[in-house]
Structure formats: C-alpha cells, structure tokens
Design a binder for these strands. Structure first.
Lengths: 169, 169
DNA sequence: CGCTTCCTTCAGAAGATTGTGAAGTTAAGG
DNA sequence: CCTTAACTTCACAATCTTCTGAAGGAAGCG
C-alpha cells in the first residue's frame, strides 16, 4: 500500500477526532455545529481557521459555519478576528480561556440563584421546601466562591506542567 | 376580595417557582419534563410526590411523568420508592445528593478525557494541536481531582450553616 | 469607481424531539 | 381468582430545531 501523504492522512485522523470529541460535547448539551466547529479549531495547529476552511473540513455550508461561530463567540469559546489585508475572517480558540468558559457557567448559576432566592421568598424560609431551596442556594453560592480559587490553582499547575511559554494563545 | 385558602395560594406560588426555575434548567441543557418534575419535587414540602400528584400539578400525562422520572433516576437526581401497602410509587429528591449529581458530570468528563487522550495520541504530542489537546486533558484531570475536596469543604460549610440535623433526606 | 470575494442573513424543508393516547403489565384487595 | 388501581411502554402526531440554498451587504483590488 502506498503511504498516504502526511496531510491526507492527517485530514482523516483529525476528522476522526473531531467527530468523536464533538459527539461527546453534543451529548453534554452543546449544539452540534458549534461543537464540531469548536473541536475543529481545537485540533488545528494554529488554533485558527477561516470560515472557508471550516466549511470544507466539516462539509457544511458557510451559513452553518456562520451560525456556529455566532453561538461560540456568544459563550466566549471562540473569538473572531479580521485578517488584515483580506476579507477573510479568522476564528480562534481562546488558547487557555476556553475551559474557563466551560467552567464559567457563572451566568447560568447566577440565574439559578435568582430563581432560588425567589423561591425561598415565596415559599417561606420556615417551610421544609423553603429550607431545601435555601440549602440549594447556599450550595451554589459556595461553588461560585470556590471556583476562582480553583482556577488559580490550575494556572499554577499548568505553569508547572507546561512551562510559562504559553505557545498557544 | 376573598383571601384564597392557603393551599390554593400555595399552588399558584409553587407553580410560578417551578416553571421559572425549570425554565433555567432547561436553558442549561436539561430536558423540559425532567426539569419540571425535578423542580416540583424540590419545591414540595416532603421532597416526595407520587406520579399522580406530579401529573396533576404539572398538567402532564402519566406517560410524561414516567419518562421524566426514568431520566432523572438515570442521572441520579431522583430515586423511586414503592409505598409499602399500595401500588403508588413515590419519587424523592435526594435531599443533599442532588447537587452532587449536577456536579458529578464525572462520567461526562471521563468520556471527554478518553476522547482527548485519543486525540493527543493520533495527532502526536509534539504538534501544536497535540499540545493544546494535552493541556485541555490536563485541565480536566485537574478538575476531577479537585472536585471531591471541594465537596468535602461544602459538607463542612453546610454543617456550619444548617446544622447537622439533615431534616431533609 | 465598479468588480469580485467572502461572509451573513433569511426563508423554507428535512429531520429530530417530545408529549399524548391507548394498550399492556404488575400487584393489591376483595 | 378475579377485579381494580397504578405505572409503564409503544407508536404516532405535533412541534421545534437545524441546516441548506439563495439573495444581500461590506471590504479589498484593479
């Protein structure tokens, strides 16, 4: 058998990984196209791809890329940058920020807290149900306070493992 | 205006809360019926409701309740118990375990890690993309190690706030 | 200054999800 | 042992989501 050229081989290997990991993210609640686009970026060497490259690699229409990128930038998992001397747009994974985004359900948790506070107020803090809600609320408040410290520890650990060169971002 | 009886008033207040909080959970990725059933249980004084009660309170068919409960017990957010001298089944929120379930995306994260390890292996740990994946993987491994300690601190904090009587479970 | 290129937006079709009704299953009680 | 009560399962129908194709708009380049 003829050894396939590096790039062809890579294309298939990458595709396998993209589809596999994206499927997991979908299962976890991410919409399909954003998941695929995101993983494709993650698996690209530069961490940057153009709309056209994504469109071709994932076999989807430019419109689908556009929608996916809009979603991803809303949740801060990807940023868009205009390539200077061109009308091409480039999309980039936030090297080490993206998992913060995944962790940062902050906005979500904040809304949960609002709903729970309302619940405690309207059911009454002296009822069994009210107490249960209050405890749940306290849990989220606790987590919200813990997460920043944990991320701080992560940065230290990251430094330790990979050195500070941050070749990525 | 005649003051409505306590229970009627509660019914509406509870319903407001149930729908509001459930909507947030849905937005966060939980299917609608499971979310509504879950919150209804959370807002019930005993933390326990029968299928019939859920069906009536949420205005959904017994079939929908059944499906929702199946989902919830799979993700360990609710447990089912047979009421001794009756064919009624009772569904219960795990007093203080349910947020552990929400936190315990463990299974999910585990699968992500598998996919990422594969990715590192096939892209090569010496490529930029491979390094990015490796870092992501390291992050999840880190989190997985941190969560148990955090939950331990939460239990201590909970004790401190609410005392150990655990009137709930 | 117009042309070209690339991206976006919009409307619609294909597909997936989800909740209902009806039949089936299990178990209590007479 | 038969009846009745309660939950579950199954197949279908309604709904919602999602992706595509086509048209529209900005920005470089000749």
């Amino acid at each position: 058998m003829v050894e396939p050229s590096g790039t062809e081989r890579d294309a298939e290997v990458i595709s396998r990984f993209v589809e596999h990991f994206a499927a997991q993210l979908v299962e976890a609640g991410l919409p399909r196209m954003p998941a695929r686009v995101f993983v494709a970026l993650l698996a690209s060497d530069a961490g940057v791809l153009t709309s056209a490259e994504l469109s071709e690699q994932l076999k989807i229409s430019p419109a689908a890329v556009s929608g996916a990128v809009r979603y991803l930038s809303q949740v801060r998992m990807v940023s868009r940058e205009r390539e200077p001397g061109s009308r091409r747009e480039r999309y980039r994974v936030h090297g080490d920020q993206w998992y913060e985004a995944l962790t940062n359900r902050e906005a979500v948790i904040r809304r949960w807290e609002v709903a729970l506070r309302e619940g405690v107020a309207s059911l009454g803090g002296d009822t069994p149900a009210g107490r249960r809600l209050a405890e749940t609320l306290a849990f989220f408040e606790f987590v919200e306070k813990e997460v920043p410290a944990m991320m701080e520890r992560w940065r230290a650990r990251r430094e330790e493992l990979f050195g500070g060169d941050g070749a990525d971002a």
